[in-house]
Design a protein around this nucleic acid. Sequence first.
RNA 1: GGAGUUGUAUCGAAGUGGUCAUAACGAGCCGCACUCGAAAUGCGGUAGUCCUCCGGGGCUCGUGGGUUCGAAUCCCACCAACUCCGCCA
Length: 426
Amino acid sequence: MLDIKRIREDYEGVKKSVESRLKGDFGIGRVKELDEKRREILAEVEALKNKQNQDSKLIPVMKKEGKDTTELMADMKALSDKIKVLDGELSAVEDELHMAILSVPNTPYKDVQVGEDDSANVELRKWGTPREFDFEYKAHWDVGTDLDILDFERAAKISGARFTVYKGLGAKLERAVINFMLNLHTTEHGFTEILPPFMVNRAAMTGTGQLPKFEEDMFYVPQKDFFLIPTAEVPVTNLRAQEIIDEAELPIYYTAYTPCFRAEAGSAGRDTRGLIRQHQFNKVEMVKFVKPETSYDELESLTLAAEAVLQRLEIPYRVVRLSTGDLGFSSAMTYDIEVWMPSYGRYVEISSCSNFESFQARRANIRFRPAEKGSKPEFVHTLNGSGLAVGRTVAAILENYQQADGSVVVPEVLRPFMGVDVIAKK
RNA sequence: GGAGUUGUAUCGAAGUGGUCAUAACGAGCCGCACUCGAAAUGCGGUAGUCCUCCGGGGCUCGUGGGUUCGAAUCCCACCAACUCCGCCA
């Protein structure tokens, strides 16, 4: 959510910034209209309420003095009716304004290049060199199926398309990757591990920006009005919702493993094979709550923490900065980490690291109290990044570490978790 | 799922229709005094939020409705916590 004051004071500037995302109708004009209408009604109703309060105090005094209050009470009834009508109008305008402003995306940071879509993304750096295969390499779904560690057919039987069953060393590999990532982030990067609920309420989904605009992308549990989390970002960021945090506690770094559930509405026909696009997948997420002036430095270190995973696994990747048109709804700036995927013949997104500035903090009401005496609470800046998507990491391992005989070498750092050096056919 | 109890500031807690929400009374915390220093004691201070013509005004007693001239207080719904029962891993 953008600051309504900022929209009021610099309407043209904010409008221009939001519209640099290029795609879609952002409805910021409606916000301005409703804000003006709201303030008009507010001034009127507050004047009437003040009168109501003043007159209301007279009644017990008059009664005590034995005076007749009939006339005054009749006047107040009329006043009260008028207030009721105006209050009704006010809350209708406020509801509409609230919905309207919740539907306006964040303003991109000044460094973000303007562009229509991912074709305008800028490559910032590359790490590692894609491997040259001297045999005919396979896509990860074939590697996994042939080794009998991934089973897409039986997953379809019990659930449907876009689900996977991991089996034997495949299941163990998934678990090893999760543990490796969590251990790295907690012991070397200063993150505190969180294991949150995988179902959340509407308020949490609104706090991080998934609602009200993207409800159709989520799995929903009508019985309790819960949503299956699309990412750990939702429960973990909302962990501190409605709080005023002591400045001394900042920055706060949380990391969490969770499964993620996505309806993948509108992506029919894309990435239909393999582990890349699933209704349910595992992810290790990193979330930061920081002071505003540090948030862009924190974005750099967050991205480096995610990159460290691929460096330890020794898999080539590159880092890109998303263009305005490719930027997520809540984000001001996003770096994507893309891993080398031989079967795609290109780099594929495996992590997304974003600075939301105060956009989520304002929605979820997450503030901190500056240490300086007498200072007012301010919104924190929130960030998050995948550290990493686990299914895609496993896919990248299977593809990049496959051998001519169909076996897969286990990356060095995962061997303590796996207990084997190679995943081979039985 | 059923029954009961509860929800007021950092915490405990009073207030049960108006003139005690500028939230009593405790506790904690921060200043100051006393002290060589500390403890004890005394004094003072210890929400948020919106609007503003910067004078001030409004809102918030779990949340949302209702009754009333007027609601923390009465009524309804919902949420959460606790106790007991049922169910369950």
